[in-house]
Amino acid sequence: MDAPPTVGVEEEFLLVDPLTGVPVGRNVDVARTAADFGMDLQLEIMRCQVETNTGVHTNTADLLDELRNLRRAAAASAEKNDAMLLAVAVPPTGADQLTITSTPRYERIAERFGRVASEQGLCGCHVHVAVPDREVALRASNYLRPWLPLFLALTANSPIYHGDETGYASWRNILWRRWPSAGPPPHFDSVRDYDVAIESMLSQGLILDRKMVYWDVRPSATFPTVEVRISDVPATVQETALLATLVRATVMTSFTTDSVPVIAERTLRAAYWRAAHDGIDGPAIDPIDGNPIPVQDLLAKLIERIAPALEQLGDIDFVAAGITTVLARGNGARRQLEAFRVRRQLIDVIGELADATLDSCR
């Protein structure tokens, strides 16, 4: 039996004032402090954002340990610069201090795309799974397409924006899809079809470079991986590790399956909206038949499909326990709303997010 593909994770975080929760533009200082500790903290497009990158992992336990270490170190670096690290996908409070990180590329993006870029402050989680070549990456991408809304529902963590409820579990997903290159990718029949699509977006001015292919699953522009980008940054490291394991096992399943369903765009868009609106607390849409279905039942369908891969990874019990915990305790969206609805005070939301961000990391 071939060795399972390796996995790695990128997590984006918001930097906020510890007292007010308002975003603060200190990512350069926080990254400099992190470098003093030997940590390579990445700058994101907004000065109130940073990103952590794990190494390449062969097992979930090691991945989870590194995710904990990275959050702990990033939080400590933020604290030394009078900021607090939050695993949240949009700013819950006002965002008066949102400014673009001063790099030539980010400034070009801001100039071309205007407020779509300057109103960012959106934090996601990207899972990379190793693949041998681009053809396999596109096959995995096609296989993953129907399950992207379910991954979004599971990790939704952005129901409150600029001081009030949005009515959505993942407001980040709604905002993110304003980019012309974002959202679910088309189903591609070949690498050539994919390359033609990218060249078309470049020539039309929809993207400035290949790194701006923001589809929710894509062959990575940097690594020999397929990259899944649908998720809000999860509230806890346990949820991030759960997401990574589900994605990895789904990619593994794509290697051996003979059937890759082509989902109609209208069905996928409906499933996206439902996932962004309700998260785990409402019906999902089965991407195969288009019918409403409880989230837990759709999760069961996915687990049934990928069970052999989970068994090979030794992660079937980890996934079962993780799903049980999320459905019972709630993902970030539910936790934020429960905290907010007690007194309708944003400080309660910030406190809940701060606890979740470093849950089990200390």
Results as ranks from 00 to 15, higher is better:
residue 254 S to F: 08
residue 318 F to P: 05
residue 174 I to N: 02
residue 274 R to P: 08
residue 134 R to K: 15
residue 132 P to N: 06
residue 51 E to I: 03
residue 166 T to M: 04
residue 262 V to W: 06
residue 181 S to Y: 04
residue 270 A to T: 14
residue 97 Q to F: 14
residue 180 P to A: 04
residue 315 D to V: 09
residue 261 P to C: 00
residue 240 T to L: 07
residue 269 R to H: 10
residue 204 Q to S: 13
residue 204 Q to N: 13
residue 145 R to I: 09
residue 126 H to L: 11
residue 123 C to D: 03
residue 356 A to V: 06
residue 266 R to V: 15
residue 157 N to F: 07
residue 13 F to A: 08
residue 165 E to F: 09
residue 229 R to P: 00
residue 320 A to S: 14
residue 194 Y to S: 01
residue 198 I to E: 11
residue 280 I to Y: 07
residue 72 R to I: 10
residue 296 Q to M: 14
residue 147 W to C: 00
residue 357 T to F: 06
residue 35 A to I: 15
residue 330 G to E: 02
residue 185 P to F: 02
residue 320 A to C: 12
residue 283 P to I: 09
residue 159 P to F: 02
residue 241 A to Q: 04
residue 150 L to I: 03
residue 109 I to D: 08
residue 279 G to L: 03
residue 322 G to S: 04
residue 169 A to I: 00
residue 94 G to Q: 14
residue 353 L to E: 12
residue 259 S to K: 15
residue 189 D to K: 14
residue 182 A to L: 02
residue 334 R to P: 03
residue 111 E to K: 14
residue 7 V to R: 02
residue 252 M to H: 08
residue 179 W to D: 02
residue 321 A to D: 09
residue 60 T to F: 10
residue 244 A to N: 01
residue 241 A to D: 02
residue 112 R to L: 01
residue 27 N to F: 05
residue 258 D to G: 15
residue 343 R to Q: 12
residue 92 P to H: 07
residue 240 T to A: 11
residue 247 V to G: 08
residue 139 R to S: 07
residue 149 P to R: 03
residue 338 E to G: 11
residue 286 D to F: 12
residue 64 L to D: 13
residue 334 R to I: 00
residue 62 D to M: 13
residue 184 P to N: 14
residue 216 D to S: 10
residue 165 E to P: 11
residue 219 P to N: 00
residue 27 N to R: 02
residue 215 W to F: 02
residue 245 T to N: 04
residue 156 A to F: 03
residue 174 I to C: 06
residue 189 D to E: 14
residue 166 T to N: 05
residue 326 V to P: 06
residue 26 R to P: 06
residue 191 V to Q: 10
residue 174 I to M: 10
residue 244 A to Y: 07
residue 244 A to P: 02
residue 229 R to G: 10
residue 149 P to K: 03
residue 197 A to N: 12
residue 357 T to D: 06
residue 57 H to E: 00
residue 311 E to L: 15
residue 287 P to L: 06
residue 108 R to Y: 00
residue 329 R to T: 14
residue 341 R to S: 14
residue 13 F to P: 07
residue 144 L to N: 02
residue 244 A to T: 03
residue 255 F to W: 11
residue 106 Y to H: 05
residue 321 A to V: 04
residue 129 V to C: 08
residue 92 P to F: 10
residue 170 S to E: 05
residue 145 R to G: 07
residue 43 L to P: 04
residue 32 R to I: 14
residue 65 D to N: 12
residue 289 D to Y: 02
residue 211 K to W: 14
residue 85 L to P: 06
residue 134 R to N: 11
residue 31 A to H: 08
residue 312 Q to P: 12
residue 242 L to C: 01
residue 154 L to G: 05
residue 350 I to R: 01
residue 27 N to M: 07
residue 305 R to L: 13
residue 314 G to Y: 04
residue 63 L to W: 11
residue 337 L to P: 03
residue 53 N to V: 12
residue 292 P to T: 12
residue 295 V to F: 05
residue 73 A to N: 14
residue 347 I to V: 13
residue 55 G to M: 11
residue 217 V to S: 01
residue 112 R to T: 01
residue 299 L to E: 07
residue 313 L to G: 09
residue 55 G to W: 11
residue 37 F to P: 11
residue 330 G to T: 02
